[in-house]
Design a protein around this nucleic acid. Structure first.
Lengths: 206, 206, 206, 206
DNA sequence: GGCTAAGCGAGACGGTACGTCCTGTCTTGCA
DNA sequence: TGCAAGACAGGACGTACCGTCTCGCTTAGCC
């Protein structure tokens, strides 16, 4: 039961005040000057905190930002009454998916979310460890909602029972993700609507 | 009409030797120590080149790497007899796509390509200008091949004529891209085969 | 007349154990790693003591060391039977001085004394307040012994009565001090013997 | 023929401008805030210079200050017409020495000289390497002047021929040095006059 | 013998400086 | 004039200590 390397800091003595200030500063700086120009020194100064306080609790700039972003999500969820961003089930799968993807399109354009999430995504591409944490803590839970909705659709017969929902969801989610991440195309409601139609009915003639 | 002062170096006098050495050094360093630890100073030293020679011809580390990577692709193409990586047309669309995607799976696992392309993709996520160049010069042409193949399939009736090929290709390409970029799932032949099947025939029962 | 607020710790409750441990740690560290690399944090850790315990009772690193060094001297004196290092009086002033200076030469070469006393001397050069305390508590009493011996010599006629002993002693003490402090020359028995001869009889011919 | 370790900097490319600015800043800061509060960072900022420029050419704060102080002396000498601070020879040794020592008393009280020279002396006490350089480059040459003057005095019969001038000079120089360095007593003209008298004629009755 | 107020070990905190590394610009001498 | 070389001003890195500040825990000394 490893008590790892040199003197783990004492979590119970941790300053909540500083933690919040660091989250706020990190998110603000990433939004204002961009991720690469956001420095640990800058975060510390802006948060009115010693650099060591950051190095004591986080291992890197990306680490700070990931936690800050998660915290932001949690706060938003709490504010919205603990409903953590779900997928409607009106009985019409196509309509439900289109609606959620339209909401996602809106969110992707929201500057407050865009800066930090792009930064984290980029870092994750090149830093596998962070990438996997990003998925485990942020992306994964969201994708799971699609899995659940697709399972329901399989029960009602809207989706073939032999389909793997974890792969199926990528047919409409991944294209949107790629356009957003790599600027491979415009992001519009029509586009996401089309994705849903293509995914549900396929490309081949019936 | 001399456009003098500071800028505009004379391309005709440019040292081919240095350019090659810089490409090689950049690619080698990214592969060896990773993109973030690759520095312009490091590239210059490794290439046996003055820093100014890099700053004279490129605007950033990412810029160097993008050109180096493009050059690498061109060289590979030339070596392979000028066939620039195409999509077969056996008349069986599903088989053709599965075959190409399996080749892509192999390529994504090739360490020589992985390091620089991940680095460029990551940089592109956060740096729109570079991202767009990455798409225009690398990703775009490759996606165009899918567009062409899908058009052919529309002519033979394998794909419905009302389908937009530019969007359709994303149904199987983007999921693979996302799994690779974001570590959202394992990448196997079965996976890509499944993607093609789902994309062509849809999720809904017929 | 309570002098309350923050300051004035209660001396009666002071931990003798900690005080000793701090003295030991300070002297050991100065000897081992040198004065500049000796830190309050290091002393505290080595002494198994909280930093605050040091800051509560001393005002600076130099302060700790000065007390530790004084204590060391007191302990040595106590061990030696309370004779606090005196000057013999055999009736032969020259011989007595030579003998004491030779003993001093030996002491200056003793590593256990050298590290802390050099450190204190150096600090005193640049920090007048500490320098004066160093003189008042350490150097002064030792010089006073020379004053006394010279006074006796004046009574026996070995030294002219119009001589100021406080200045006279410097003729042989200061040169040794300077050679030790500033590395201006080698320190040997012959040297100190010569100093005594020159000082007693002068440089001019008789 | 050692070409030492990692890449010795190219002296011929060195910026004279920066060197001067660094000397000035170092001397000014030591005078204004004291040696311990003088930091390399502070010197760099004040001199309008990058820190690396200091680290490239000097190995420590003390090193910078020593060179700055030597340079200050050289400049003063040059300004005064290349007469590097000498000892008069009027034929009256006592008078000459008293006169020089009185001048030294004045100099020791000069704030512009006091701060840096105290700092260097202190550092030299604790750092033998620097101490020896301090002596070799500053103190030694000055002491040599006394040696020369005493040699002349030996030729004229004012000083006994068997006296070692290098030791003799310490009888009046070292006491002054010690009082200055260690605050062991007041520094006045009477004091230095007395030192000369005692040293020349000894303490014992004739 | 229990209560309470200190000293105590520990160490988190806001800071400052360290010495290193790299950026992007500028200058020097070679080809 | 392009180039290798590298000095320069600047600035961020991650580390080490500073001196202050809480935390619980002993440990007196007074009721």
């Amino acid at each position: 039961m490893a008590q790892n390397q040199s003197s783990a800091p004492d979590t119970s003595r941790r300053s909540e005040r500083s933690r919040r200030a660091i989250y706020d500063a990190a998110l603000a700086l990433v939004a204002e000057v961009g991720y690469p120009k956001t420095t640990i020194e800058g975060i510390a100064t802006r948060a009115g905190v010693g650099k060591q306080t950051i190095y004591r609790w986080w291992s890197s700039k990306a680490d700070v930002l990931l936690e800050a972003f998660l915290d932001l999500g949690n706060q938003a969820a709490e504010a919205a009454g603990h409903v953590p961003y779900t997928i409607p089930d009106t009985g019409d799968l196509a309509a439900d998916l289109k609606s959620v993807l339209r909401a996602t399109v809106d969110e992707l354009g929201n500057p407050a979310f865009e800066a930090p999430s792009r930064a984290l995504a980029a870092e994750g591409v090149v830093n596998e460890e962070l990438g996997r944490r990003f998925v485990a803590q942020l992306l994964g839970p969201q994708l799971q909602l699609y899995v659940d909705r697709l399972r329901t659709a399989q029960e009602t017969g809207e989706v073939r029972p032999d389909i793997d929902p974890r792969i199926a969801l990528e047919l409409f989610v991944s294209p949107l993700a790629q356009r957003w991440l790599q600027y491979t195309g415009p992001i519009t409601y029509e586009y996401t609507d089309t994705l849903v139609d293509y995914a549900l009915h396929g490309l081949a003639p019936r």
